[in-house]
Design a protein around this nucleic acid. Structure first.
Lengths: 140, 140
DNA sequence: TTCCTTGCAAATACTTTGCAGACTG
DNA sequence: CAGTCTGCAAAGTATTTGCAAGGAA
């Protein structure tokens, strides 16, 4: 179960499992799109969970440090989104410019490209972003 | 010459060529890295050009509307960068996590991938970002 | 001389920080 | 009970907006 793995990570870094951390994790666990801090805040409020926006930010940052959550900066959105990493393969996203729906792309064509870039630029490549925007079937 | 093309675009949209627009364009023309608004502001101040940060933002937005400038949101930088589009091929970037240097990658492997994504998701793909981070030769 | 553009101040959006009281282990 | 975590207020950063004065055509 996810919570067990998390308690371990928290304990090892001198942290504690709390009501709010549980709530954020549970929300991310049952949600299938990456959520922004304000969306997490709003959804928890709807679910009658008392939590402050500041605490949401602090929580996602802790979870990111523990390697449990991924932070995404989608194309010209002006805010970050967070999704559970738990056992998921590296992947990318496409977002509809009209309705904002975000769909996972379960592919990444960049392994060969990364090697090519390292050869050409002499950089050591550490990470990459690849995000698409477009129009979803409903909004075309 | 670039300025001629720009005057045309400005005129056609009921706009005017001004001292500040010239200065921003000239700076982008002689700079080989994408610049943020505050960098444009700082460099113009150094060059004895009187300009407000607000005007920088308004100027890059106008140039973006005219299709003369590209706005980039590099990986977790928290600010936008702008570069002249003028006759340049579509390309991507890699940024050094230590010194911040940004290098152009004169390639884009995404034409085939775009088609595949359109088939799989039924989205119409409109645009994409692809940015790398890593460590440049000097900072390794 | 029209009306677009600028600078300044203020507003907005997202995120982080400081601090005292609340809670976990 | 020690030390972490939370909520509230406030600050910080990037960007946008309102408005009166200045400037281009």
């Amino acid at each position: 179960m996810l919570e067990t793995a998390i308690r371990k990570g928290l304990r090892e870094t001198g942290r504690r499992m709390t009501r709010t951390r549980k709530a954020v994790l549970a929300l991310l666990e049952r949600t299938h799109e990456p959520l922004s801090a304000s969306e997490i805040f709003a959804q928890l409020q709807q679910a009658q969970v008392a939590i402050d926006l500041v605490t949401v930010y602090r929580t996602v940052n802790v979870l990111k440090e523990l390697g449990l959550v991924l932070q995404l900066d989608l194309f010209q959105e002006g805010q970050s989104r967070y999704e559970l990493k738990e056992g998921r393969k590296h992947h990318h996203h496409i977002r509809c410019q009209i309705c904002g729906r975000i769909v996972d792309l379960l592919l990444c064509p960049l392994k060969k490209l990364t090697k090519l870039i390292e050869e050409r630029t002499q950089f050591v490549v550490d990470d990459h972003t690849l995000e698409f925007t477009g129009f979803c079937p409903k909004c075309q």
